[in-house]
Design a protein around this nucleic acid. Sequence first.
DNA 1: TTTGATACTGAACGATCGTTCAGATAAGCT
DNA 2: AGCTTATCTGAACGATCGTTCAGTATCAAA
Lengths: 195, 195
Amino acid sequence: MARKSGSHSEITGPRIRTEARRLFARHGFAAVSMRQIAAAVGLQAGALYLYTPDKESLLFDLLKGHMDELLAAWAEVPAAASPPEQLEAFVRFHIRFNLERAEAVFLSYMELRNLGPDNFAAIEALRRAYENELESILRAGQAEGCFALPDTKLATLAIIAMLTGVNTWFREGGRFSRAAVEQIYWDMVRKAVAA
Amino acid sequence: MARKSGSHSEITGPRIRTEARRLFARHGFAAVSMRQIAAAVGLQAGALYLYTPDKESLLFDLLKGHMDELLAAWAEVPAAASPPEQLEAFVRFHIRFNLERAEAVFLSYMELRNLGPDNFAAIEALRRAYENELESILRAGQAEGCFALPDTKLATLAIIAMLTGVNTWFREGGRFSRAAVEQIYWDMVRKAVAA
DNA sequence: TTTGATACTGAACGATCGTTCAGATAAGCT
DNA sequence: AGCTTATCTGAACGATCGTTCAGTATCAAA
């Protein structure tokens, strides 16, 4: 046996990333073997090394890709006029985007410790860049007097933790629609930061 | 070589759990070998099996012990009179207790997937019991009209996620003392649930 | 001082790990 | 049809995994 009929790297590459993301999210990076990923795609383990130099690089590509897309998607959200409107846009965006990519979100803060120092620093920098987007909104609102926060950095982390927590319990077809969840969380955030 | 001088199970047992907790929290359950744990304690791997039937049971004991102590510690907090006072007590307790046991907290929601179905269900039940403590406070406040929440279960999960998020950034000797963090988070929670 | 219970070593078991690579087949261009 | 390039297999490498166990040294009681 050798090359399979209908095989193309533009198809196999994404499938490897999809299956790796699914398996890493479900069982954890360290608990998933290259052979499991290969089997999920329908390959032998050796074939994976045509697409990634090693296992950690495969994880890093998933995390890097997710963070890049997160920042790019937020950059495309039209800028609102006032800090409260900007904050509402951020809250709704964060919940919506994270629910659409639950596996990648899960990975991006559960499996960071499996990266080497350089890769770790790269993902951390992107995460901080995203946090800074929220913090600059809070600082602007603070300066205008429409928010009352003892510390904007701390409020940033508190809000993001609360919003990301949605991923741990939300299930499609449950008691709340995504739109309803957005509204409820926005109400809580709005009140929490209010002057 | 065989039994070591000064060896006692009442000493070795806790040391194994302490080192296992530390290593599991730092590198993840699947990434830590029994030999690493044994080496941290100063033993050979085989000796661990005098203290645990297998690796998963060692993890389960850590998680079970943590959840039991969490519920016991909350039960000892004197009950406040009104729902807002009860909520303040809960917020301060949660932050304080979780900061004191950062490793165990980390484990208790990162390594749940490494448990078999029965062990998983046991820990989940304890976690739900703890969540119910908070939710009953929110329901009481809702009934009395001092809280305004679209859904108490959802608010419960949002608040716990926000509070537990402290563990991801708090460092001893940083810009805020534990007492200051308690105060700031309590202010945000108070405003978020206010009628 | 003898003796049985307790605590641990050191070697070994089969299984599985990430990774490499020579060889084989399919795809796509000429 | 022939040739090159792209894609994958299957076997193998040494390392490490969780776990077992016969043997041995210490402890504690008699």
